[in-house]
Simulated assay, not measured.
Amino acid sequence: MLVSDAQNVEIIESFLDKVGGDLTLCTLTQEVLLHLLQHHSGPVTVDFRKSKITERNVRDFLHLLDRIRFKRPSPGFIMCIIMEIYQSRSPQYVSSLLRSTENHINLTTRGLDAADCAALRFTLHHSQGVRLNLMWTSIPEGELESLLQLLTNVSQLSVDRQLLLRILHCCYSSDVQQGAAAALLQALQHRLDFSCSSAMDLTEETQEPPLHLTPEDCRVVSMVIQRVSVNPELMLMDCDVEEVQ
C-alpha cells in the first residue's frame, strides 16, 4: 500500500481523513493495518475477507480494538481475540471487541473445546445484548449447560437444529437449567426452527436429511414451551416424528 510505504504521518492522516477511515476496498496485511493505526487517531473500517489478516499475533490488536470496525471477520479470528481477552482477564477489551464487530460474535462452524467455552463464557459475562452465532458449532456436552446460564446477555442467538435440540434437552434436564428456557426463547426471537433451512451448511454440498424426533424429543420441546409465558413459533418442516408405541 503506497500510503503506508510513504512513512509520512501527514500523508497517512490526509488519506484516511479523505476516505473517512473506510479501508474496505483495500487489501491490507496485519503489519500495514497496525502501521496505519499507529499514525491515525480515528477509527478505520476493514473488510476482513478482502485483507490478509491472520490469527497470528492477535494480541497486537487488543489495545486497538476501539478504533477498528471489522467487516466479515472470520470465526477463527474472533475466537482467537476472545481467547486473548480471556487470558488477559481484561473485561474492558470485551466492550471494545463488540464495538469493532457491531455487537456480533460469529463462531459458526467452529469446534469449541473446554478452554474455548471458558473464554466465551468470560466474554458473555461481560457483554450485554450481544448477537451470538453458533450455527454448526460443536460444543462439548458438559460445557453447554454453563453457557445457557449466560443467555440473558444474548439478544439474538443463531443455532442449527441439532444444537437447538441439545439445548432444549439441557433446559429440561434440571431445575437449574429450566430457568434458562425464557432467556433461550427470547434470544431465538421466539422461534423454534427445526426445518432444513436452519440446518443448511453452505460449506457442504450434500442435502440435509430429515431430522428424526423421538417421543422424548417431542416431550422436551412441549415442556419447554409450557414453561415460558410467550408461545413461540414452532417449525417442524423436514422432520420425522416417531410415533409412541
Rank of each mutant, 00 (worst) to 15 (best):
L151A: 06
E84C: 06
G179H: 10
S174Q: 07
H169L: 00
L144I: 03
C171R: 04
I81T: 09
N103C: 03
L112G: 04
I81G: 03
L64C: 04
L98Q: 10
S95W: 03
F122W: 09
Q162M: 02
D160M: 01
S158H: 14
A180C: 11
M135F: 11
Q149N: 12
L192F: 09
V94R: 06
I82W: 04
L124F: 02
C170R: 08
L164C: 03
L120I: 04
Q92F: 13
V94L: 01
D160V: 00
D193S: 07
R191T: 07
A180F: 02
M83N: 14
R110L: 10
Q156N: 14
S195E: 00
D193H: 06
T101G: 02
R161D: 00
C170T: 06
L134C: 07
L112K: 08
L163H: 05
P73I: 00
G129N: 14
F77I: 02
F122K: 11
S146L: 14
D160T: 03
S88K: 14
D113H: 11
D160W: 00
R89V: 03
L120C: 08
S88P: 02
E204H: 12
I139A: 01
Q177R: 06
S90T: 06
H104S: 13
L147M: 04
L151W: 15
H104Q: 11
R67L: 06
I68A: 08
M83H: 15
T108A: 13
Y172Q: 07
S95C: 09
I78M: 08
C80I: 05
Q92Y: 14
T108S: 15
L147W: 01
Q178V: 03
I105S: 11
V130A: 12
S127K: 10
T152C: 14
E145V: 11
Q178D: 03
L165N: 09
R166K: 13
S127V: 05
G111C: 13
Y93L: 04
A114Q: 14
R131G: 09
T123R: 08
